[in-house]
């Protein structure tokens, strides 16, 4: 149990250091996804499987896809052939692959060894989290929904194309 925690923590710290020190954004994103998976494994070991799933789905799924879209929209002038051959090099994906393999072995070990949950840890289930979120924390949940709405409106406002002023009689 403690060994698995230390191993997952080491993978998380190592991957995060690699995130900050990369020069290529996509490589940094790969390492950051590995770091998020390591943190999700720590959550699972701590007896919080609900937020472990959310960490993978929302952080590594949704937010990282946002970053990938931004990189796609920002990175215009790189030679296609050179970039393709450069990204196919094993040096680009060997590090994340090894770290992910360690995490995968650890997860399989945890699932098959401990069964449904880690032994000796009382699991805080998704039901308890939901009851707490929509019970005492109802006001907080509403405020978070307002923040998400404000973020959506702001991102739309900032991301749209500027209007063509004075192009056709200045009426726009």
């Amino acid at each position: 149990m403690n060994v698995m925690f230390v191993l997952a923590s080491a993978v998380a710290v190592l991957a995060t250091v690699m995130v900050v020190t990369r020069t290529n954004v996509i490589h940094a994103l790969l390492y950051f996804i590995v770091s998020l998976m390591a943190v999700a494994l720590i959550f699972y070991l701590l007896g919080a499987p609900f937020v472990a799933a959310l960490e993978i789905i929302i952080y590594a799924g949704a937010i990282m896809v946002l970053f990938v879209f931004a990189v796609m929209m920002l990175n215009p002038k790189v030679d296609q052939d050179r970039r393709g051959s450069e990204w196919a090099r094993p040096a680009a994906w060997a590090g994340p692959a090894v770290l992910t393999f360690i995490l995968g072995v650890e997860l399989l070990f945890a699932v098959y060894w401990y069964g449904s949950g880690p032994a000796g840890v009382t699991e805080v289930s998704a039901r308890q989290v939901g009851m707490s979120l929509y019970g005492p924390y109802l006001l907080g949940a509403e405020m978070v929904s307002m923040i998400l709405l404000a973020g959506l409106v702001t991102a739309y406002h900032l991301g749209r194309q500027p209007r063509m002023i004075n192009r056709e009689g200045g009426s726009d």
Binding site: F50, L54, A70, L74, V129
Partner: peptide, 26 residues
């Protein structure tokens, strides 16, 4: 479950923050 609820709040705030931040980057 309070810690996990706080994590949900942080998650939503990070999502909103990164959406605005990437729009600002564009």
């Amino acid at each position: 479950p309070d810690g996990q609820v706080m994590f949900l709040f942080i998650l939503a705030m990070a999502a909103a923050e990164v959406a605005i931040g990437l729009a600002l980057a564009l």
